[in-house]
Structure formats: C-alpha cells, structure tokens
C-alpha cells in the first residue's frame, strides 16, 4: 500500500462527507421558524436540561473497549510479519494476548461487565 493512495482515501472521504453537507445546504429548500428549531422529544414539550450525568458503567465499558482496541492495533504489525518470523512471533503474541486477557478475566470476576 502506498501513501499516496491513503492520502487520496482521506481526501475523498472528507469530500464525500463535506460535499454531501454543502450540496444539501445549497439545494435543500429552507423554512425557518422558532418551533422548528426546538429540540424534538417525541412531540411533547421538553423538560429540563439535556446534560445528564451518565452511569459510570458506560465509562468502564469504553475504557475496556479502548484497551482491546490497542491490543488489536498491536496485532496488525504481527499479522503483517507473521510469515517471516514464524513461531517466535506467534509465541510472543500469545503471551501478549494472555496477559491482556487476564484483565478481561479480572473485570469479569469483579462483575463490572454486568449491567444492572
């Protein structure tokens, strides 16, 4: 994979998103009134502020997701060079995965993955 292709991918991705927004603001008919600008909540008048305090459980799930995200990122270079380094690289990644899996077992045992 060469860098130019990836740069082109980024630019085209941006252009798809940005172009869609720009074209729809140009083409779409507009009618503005204060009722339309209100927050929509099932049709009834809204109550209170939208800024709620979330459950801490969301944060825990997010941080566990982040850790396994990083783990997968470490597996990408391994997958690329796996054929060249063979068994050594395989053992190394197994040790790596087992140590990180300990964290998942710990979180499971502590029942933080249970949603209640």
């Amino acid at each position: 994979m060469n860098t130019e292709a990836l740069i082109l991918f980024f630019i085209v991705g941006l252009a798809m998103v940005g172009g869609g927004i720009i074209i729809s603001t140009i083409l779409a008919p507009k009618s503005k009134n204060p009722v339309k600008e209100e927050t929509y909540e099932c049709g009834i008048p809204t109550q209170g502020a939208s800024w709620l305090q979330y459950k801490i459980g969301y944060y825990l799930f997010a941080i566990i997701f982040l850790i396994f995200d990083v783990e997968i990122i470490f597996m990408v270079p391994w997958a690329v060079v796996m054929k060249d380094y063979g068994f050594t690289a395989f053992v190394e990644i197994i040790i790596f995965l087992m140590i990180v899996a300990l964290g998942l077992i710990y979180a499971y045992k502590k029942k933080v993955l249970r949603w209640d």
């Binding site: 825990l60 941080i63 783990e71 190394e92 964290g103 979180a107």
Partner: peptide
C-alpha cells in the same frame, strides 16, 4: 512489547 501488555492490564485493573 510484552511489557506493553502489562501496561494495558494495569489500565484495566485501575479502571475497575
């Protein structure tokens, strides 16, 4: 590289 896995483990344990 293996030490990095301990870092990730510590992050999970700390958060929990």
């Amino acid at each position: 590289f293996e030490l990095a896995s301990f870092l990730l483990l510590a992050a999970i344990v700390g958060a929990v």
